[in-house]
């Protein structure tokens, strides 16, 4: 499903080039649950941005469903993110002006016109124990609750590939376990899941672990 070849991204800092992502080869298929670990600044977020077409690569190829996403137009990339690849941003990613339920449904309604998501959204919310907060605004939620809402939003429209950037950072064990359990369960149902973390305690058997160091990635 996802096939990455020699992916490279170069940044400039004070007139010095460096590869934030260097010649990365990587692949995954439906049902895989991959975890990317590595120290801060090693290039995890940059790699994820390349995978969903938020950042343009400087070299290499990213094949998703046999199409090279580096060659897609902005519009096609937006459609891809709207329907097939779901990306959970690092940190807080809820819209402050919308309630929890609106946060889950409205962005998808905007990007691909889907209006049938409310029922699924409520199911996910109750799975995460948040159904009572459906009409609360994000500012009234704790960090862990907000993270769960963002994850519910990433799954609600049934994408094929879910990429989550540090979905468990700053969370306690209970919240972390709840989220990892959910990912595992979704992977079993055939979704491809790719997350990053520097919290090694959330590793479980059955996960495929990759390690990243200064832009280079290898299987651990």
């Amino acid at each position: 499903m996802l096939n990455v070849k020699n992916l490279t991204k170069t940044f400039d800092r004070q007139n010095r080039h460096f590869d934030a992502v260097h010649e990365v080869n990587f692949s995954m298929k439906g049902g895989d649950f991959c975890v990317l670990t590595g120290p801060s600044g090693c290039g995890k977020s940059t790699f994820f941005h390349l995978l969903c077409g938020i950042t343009k690569a400087d070299g290499g190829e990213v094949f998703f469903d046999k199409k090279d996403i580096c060659k897609l137009s902005d519009k096609e990339l937006a459609a891809l993110r709207a329907e097939k690849i779901s990306y959970v941003l690092q940190g807080d990613s809820l819209l402050p002006n919308f309630t929890v339920l609106e946060n889950i449904c409205l962005p998808h309604q905007l990007s691909c016109g889907r209006t049938d998501l409310e029922k699924k959204a409520m199911e996910l919310l109750s799975h995460f124990g948040l159904e009572a907060m459906a009409n609360d605004y994000p500012s009234n939620l704790s960090g862990g609750e907000r993270r769960r809402v963002a994850i519910a939003r990433a799954f609600v429209h049934d994408p094929k590939l879910i990429i989550a950037d540090e979905p468990t950072s700053d969370l306690d064990e209970e919240n972390t376990a709840m989220i990892i359990d959910f990912f595992q369960q979704q992977a079993k149902q055939g979704k491809a899941i790719l997350i990053s973390t520097h919290d090694l305690s959330c590793l479980r058997p059955g996960m495929i672990r990759y390690q990243m160091e200064k832009g280079c990635m290898k299987k651990a």
Binding site: C52, I54, D74, K75, A78, A79, L80, R81, A82, E83, S86, Y87, L89, S93, L94, L95, P96, N97, P107, H108, L110, S111, C112, R153
Partner: peptide
Amino acid sequence: KEFGILASLGAGSGK
């Protein structure tokens, strides 16, 4: 950031 979030969820620049 709000627009970035929407874009990451697939909203195109026109939207």
